[in-house]
Amino acid sequence: MDQPATRAILLGSGTPHADPDRCGPAVAIVAGGELYLFDCGPGIVRRAAAACRAGATELEAVRLQRLFLTHLHSDHTAGLPDLLLTPWVLGRRAPLEVWGPPGTAAMLSHIQEAYRADIRLRLEGREPANETGWQARPHEIATGRVYEDAQVAIDAFPVRHGPAPAFGYRIAGRERSIVISGDTAPTDEIVSQSLGCDLLFHEVYSRAGFARQPADWQAYHREMHTASDELADLASRACPGLLVLYHQLFWGESEEGLIAELRGGYGARIASGRDLDVY
């Protein structure tokens, strides 16, 4: 079967839980041979290598050059030192371009400072290393159009995930549109951004599992994340071509159980995302 010209590869479907089968949140969008990464949870570079080995050559380490961060929580950014430095060690010459909320530039400069000794050793020692690939170009964004080239137009929109700025992204490819929620409680903005999109990657937690959580964690998740029944309602209004669950908090429920929870209020196409799934 022919692959769509704009396709999404789920590099990491996980959460802060150290699930060995699910790396931290990361989505790769491939369009016209160009690569755009969204979030960089732990494990991103090795998952990208696995996708490359499986045939997605756009994810070769030296081509990991553009990253869009939804927010700065560690489960979405713990792979950033890896993404900044490993592809450079492997030969990437271009600086890493990073779009993200205010604080992105500070995070990058502190990472570079933390690895200063290593960077200096590689630059000044006997190991062959170029002088540009370890650098980063941060773009601290607000909502609206943040990137556009011949393949995609990318808009950031606000999501509700605590007091710090956090974004979702809508990626308009030539023939497909993809929305990535990042971490968020349900909002009307996500519905309007996702209306009629082809793919909606949305975070979710199990309502049944939620009931077993301590009260303080329930309060946190109620305010910051999206329950399965809330996502069912949201998807019913947005009508995406395919709803892909990612950043799933199962809390002891199975994938089938989580999907069943959504089926209570949403009858269209759902996929429970797993690492390295291609859509």
């Binding site: 604080g103 500070a106 007091p163 710090a164 700025p165």
Partner: peptide, 9 residues
């Protein structure tokens, strides 16, 4: 950096 008003507002 850790204030509740966000990282750099």
């Amino acid at each position: 950096w850790t204030s509740t008003s966000g990282p750099s507002r």
